[in-house]
């Protein structure tokens, strides 16, 4: 069931990515120039943060499969913590852009930049809420080696959020 949802979400992002790519093809100069104004380091740092966070979630799932609920909860908390780092970095990026007076209406590139990164940002927040709920239940001892669907569902969602960013970063920050 979660897969249907994940694929539906991926479809939404996929269409946004393709819309970006094709809108760029009609306005290459503008896109290339605007892209240079982005903070690539922040984007790359956030990629590393999400990848590592995803890795922690994998470890959490492995821990619960070995019936180590406490370790599972610790990995989950670490993953949420990294999610928090992503949020902070992203917010500072957003703040810098809006301080420079750049918004949705600045140009087509920034329209895509804002809508895609913000839409993804909302998914990060939702993913963190889900992971926190799973963490809470894991601490209560709700999961075991035989029954941990909740952990796997939350994990899959978080990996989806990671996967989307893995495409978004090179597409918006690097490719020209």
């Amino acid at each position: 069931m979660i897969w249907i949802f994940i694929y539906a979400e991926l479809l939404v992002f996929g269409i946004l990515f393709l819309a970006y790519a094709f809108a760029r093809s009609r306005n290459v100069v503008l896109f290339n120039a605007s892209q240079l104004e982005l903070n690539r380091t922040a984007g790359a740092v956030n990629t590393l943060v999400l990848i590592t966070s995803s890795y922690f979630v994998v470890r959490a799932v492995a821990a619960i499969r070995a019936d180590r609920a406490e370790a599972c909860a610790r990995w989950l908390l670490a993953a949420v913590g990294l999610g928090g780092v992503f949020v902070v970095v992203k917010l500072s990026e957003f703040a810098a852009k809006s301080a420079a007076g750049i918004g949705l209406s600045t140009n087509t590139f920034y329209m895509f930049y804002w809508s895609m990164t913000f839409f993804h940002f909302m998914h990060v927040l939702l993913g963190m809420v889900i992971l926190l709920a799973v963490w809470w239940k894991a601490r209560q001892g709700a999961y075991s080696a035989s029954e941990h669907t909740g952990v796997e569902t939350g994990a899959s969602y978080w990996h989806m959020v990671d996967l989307v960013w893995i495409i978004l970063f090179p597409l918006v920050y690097v490719m020209r």
Partner: peptide, 22 residues
């Protein structure tokens, strides 16, 4: 309204049939 609605409106509303299909 701002021009970006043409993109956002097109992309997101194009996906509105999905929940009905489900």
């Amino acid at each position: 309204t701002p021009e970006y609605w043409q993109w956002l409106g097109s992309v997101f509303s194009a996906l509105e049939p999905i929940p009905f299909f489900m």
